[in-house]
């Protein structure tokens, strides 16, 4: 109870009592580390990220080495996660696909956060008619049916982008842009709400009275203080984007078959469930573990950024 946030009365008392002074971010980090499940999630996610980054350097089997003698085999020493219907090594494919799935998740999240922050900031700072119009647009985007629209856009623009950027880069750009472009609304609303309350706070007013221009007020004073909820929403967005990409690939409309993302491996595996369940179980579990650990991290971050909730317990 004694140390809440330096700057509050309790924080000043703590400092006066000779305890080390800690910054707001250090406090947040400390609260995050106390959230046990969020820490477990971080460790699992870190392990997953490290293995897809460095795994292919250690496990050097090619992802498209066809070997019909070893097809649909369960886990063994030569193929730790078994093989698929062409005898391709699943561990190598999963490690490669994991890179794509995680890259899609992070890139789509960055797009969503950038659009959301920009729109929310403009809306919240400008107010008036601009705010009203941007919020109507946000509401309309919230009412769009996400997956059907995603499918429609991928269907209509797939071939054009493939021609323009090549089969892999084209579909990557398309999927990332569309997932990010359909997920910014929550961030925009959060940022706008933060701006509306922060705009009237004393520290912004003092900056204004000292002659800070609007851009400086926003970038230097308001934006950094409204980042907490955005970071939480961004974390959850990574998970949502990974699920969206896997869903597309699972429906056979995402990445082409030679790029084995986790969703794509599941799509290929789903018709062989009765005699090769391992083929579906490993990628499915990988998606599940990634999403679960990201969600727990998001939960921990939410508690860490909002100490009132934890104290309420």
């Amino acid at each position: 109870m004694a140390r809440v946030v330096s700057g509050t009365v309790a924080g000043k008392l703590a400092v006066a009592a000779g305890q080390p002074r800690t910054s707001l971010w250090q406090e947040t980090g400390r609260r995050f580390r106390r959230h046990r499940l969020a820490m477990v999630g971080s460790v699992i996610l870190l392990a997953l990220v490290l293995s897809v980054l460095f795994g292919p350097l250690v496990w050097r089997l090619p992802i498209n080495d066809i070997d019909f003698r070893a097809k649909l085999k369960g886990p063994s020493w030569s193929h730790p996660l078994g093989t698929d219907d062409l005898g391709q090594d699943l561990l190598a494919r999963m490690l490669y696909g994991g890179r794509i799935s995680l890259a899609v998740g992070i890139a789509a999240m960055l797009i969503a956060i950038s659009i959301g922050t920009a729109i929310g900031a403009i809306s919240g700072f400008a107010g008036g008619a601009v705010d009203h119009m941007l919020m109507r647009i946000t509401d309309m985007f919230l009412a769009l049916p996400g997956l059907p629209l995603l499918l429609l856009i991928v269907y209509l623009f797939r071939d054009a982008l493939r021609k323009m950027f090549g089969p892999e880069a084209g579909i990557f750009i398309l999927i990332v842009a569309v997932i990010g472009g359909l997920r910014w609304m929550q961030v925009a609303r959060l940022v706008r709400a933060q701006f509306l309350s922060l705009r009237e706070k004393e520290f912004v007013e003092s900056a204004r009275s000292l002659g800070a221009r609007p851009l400086r007020q926003v970038v230097r004073h308001i934006l950094p203080n409204s980042m907490g909820p955005v970071i939480v929403a961004g974390t959850i967005d990574v998970a949502a984007a990974i699920i969206a990409e896997s869903t597309l690939s699972f429906l056979g409309l995402g990445f082409p078959p030679d790029i084995p993302t986790w969703g794509r491996i599941l799509f290929d595996a789903k018709d062989n469930l009765d005699f090769a369940p391992h083929w579906a179980m490993f990628p499915g579990t990988a998606i599940f573990l990634t999403v679960l650990s990201i969600n727990y991290i998001g939960d921990g971050l939410r508690d860490a950024f909002d100490p009132r909730k934890v104290l309420g317990k």
């Binding site: 998970a239 699920i243 896997s246 869903t247 699972f250 969703g263 599941l266 789903k270 469930l273 009765d274 369940p277 579906a280 499915g284 998606i287 599940f288 999403v291 679960l292 969600n295 727990y296 939960d299």
Partner: peptide, 22 residues
């Protein structure tokens, strides 16, 4: 509940088929 909403529907569907049908 946490596990439930971290499980993508396509994977839950396959798990159900694997367990209850196969």
């Amino acid at each position: 509940a946490f596990i439930g909403f971290s499980l993508p529907t396509f994977f839950t569907g396959l798990l159900f088929i694997l367990l209850l049908s196969i």
